[in-house]
Design a protein around this nucleic acid. Structure first.
Lengths: 245, 245
DNA sequence: TCTTATTGCTTCATTATGAAGCAATGATAG
DNA sequence: CTATCATTGCTTCATAATGAAGCAATAAGA
């Protein structure tokens, strides 16, 4: 079974994009509970999910390509994007298009640039494009079956994020404008995959000096109202660039 | 002036390699004093130096390509290699081949994968291949004029190395089998670009537990003979993989 | 044999971290 | 309208890591 849309897009790609090079985006979002990634399911691809991805136009910078791809999928515009690795093994896509002719674009040997993106989960609306059947957030600890090495790419992105979080602040792009200390802690725990001591987290984050305490609280919860914070973006950037030994 | 060799190699590359994709290697070596990179000068390229680089064969994994390229240049075989970034801006090579026809391989738009390599300076003999005029070690703080964005690539590689060194051991690939504590410290200082306190360095490295103290000293120096060490490779690997918050 | 620079390793003060706890608070149940 | 409860803000205490400095040992050269 050869799907007409796939063949059509193949023709388009050969004319407009750099061959053998693709981009896959691991989009992280946080929903107060868990760390999620944005996944989609192609119409022709049984039960397997894929990362949002695409190709690099012949006259397009890599970062621009990644931004474009993400905007198409998520509608989101101002997104924190970072190329974290390259996946260049052979036969990455072997088997997935075996019913098609050899000159099918998607059947070529591809080197994929892995980007990860950090987005505020609440400001993204997953977009289901014509060739997709579904597009949604999936928690990183319950990933579905995925195509090719996409699960590995996610694992790699997560590992990168976990390294970052050790010595750099995180959250600016993952949390809404205003948030509470427990929310920030839950984000850290979701990324790291384990619980942190509350008092020590409070002390450490406070000393980082990246938070502005707002003069209001989040009322309506079941218990004591937590104080709202926002990031001090100047100090946040400074902390991103600092390092010490 | 169009150089025949360049045109010949262009034809070869179109047949054998993935178009639009190249690899550049930042090879770091340490010579007891300074951190160096391996650079070469092409015959046709005036006074500009370049990073050793090459192309990815159509049926070749990325890491294999990088290994092959490095082996050709340095003769070295067992080398620590790591892809650290991708450089995909437009017009990276603009101007360098402007006298050639547009179908010249080297004139295409290239996305470059940046690898950095750590080698024992003493075990590498720079190889001057037919298209090169020179190939040598250059100290990172006195780099010559370089082609395209190659200086930026080196800066990027160095930044990556400096991040690594903060929380992971380094030296296994940069130092000879046996070395002294002051030598290791000088390596750290060369990478970081500033001096470290001697006693604290000693204490920290010792606590890392990655060194085996050998039962001999380096005699012949001008002063007290320093003890020789080698790396405990098991613990070294463990330290590479560990992390904590 | 005395001087010198260097090395191995320790000491002391300061700071960061892990573990635990106390008082305040806001919603809810009685 | 008060008692209960989980949660929060923030602190305390013990322990570990770090920065700065110093002391004794030592190999080479004067």
């Amino acid at each position: 079974m050869q799907i007409k849309e796939v063949i059509e897009s193949s023709k388009r790609h050969w004319q407009t994009a750099l061959p053998h090079l693709s981009i896959d985006c691991v989009v992280f979002g946080f929903d107060q509970q868990k760390l999620n990634v944005l996944l989609l399911k192609l119409k022709d691809n049984a039960n397997n999910w894929i990362l949002p991805g695409g190709y690099v136009l012949k006259e397009e910078a890599l970062d621009d390509a990644a931004k474009r791809i993400l905007k198409e999928r998520s509608g989101a515009d101002k997104i924190f994007l970072n190329a974290f690795s390259v996946f260049g093994n052979l036969n990455r896509s072997e088997g997935y298009f075996k019913e098609y002719d050899d000159d099918l674009w998607h059947k070529q040997r591809f080197v994929t640039i892995g980007y990860y993106a950090l987005v505020d989960h609440t400001s993204v609306t997953p977009v289901i494009d014509p060739s997709s059947e579904d597009c949604r957030w999936m928690p990183i600890d319950e990933l579905p079956e995925m195509v090719m090495d996409h699960k590995n790419i996610i694992g790699n992105a997560l590992a990168t994020l976990r390294e970052q979080i050790k010595y750099k602040p995180i959250g600016l792009n993952l949390l809404p404008e205003e948030f509470t200390m427990p929310e920030l802690q839950r984000l850290y725990e979701a990324i790291l995959g384990y619980k942190l001591n509350r008092g020590n987290f409070y002390r450490r984050i406070t000393r980082f000096n990246i938070l502005k305490k707002l003069d209001k609280e989040r009322k309506g919860g079941a218990h004591k109202a937590p104080i709202l914070y926002s990031f001090d973006e100047d100090n946040y950037q400074k902390a991103l660039n600092d390092f010490s030994w």
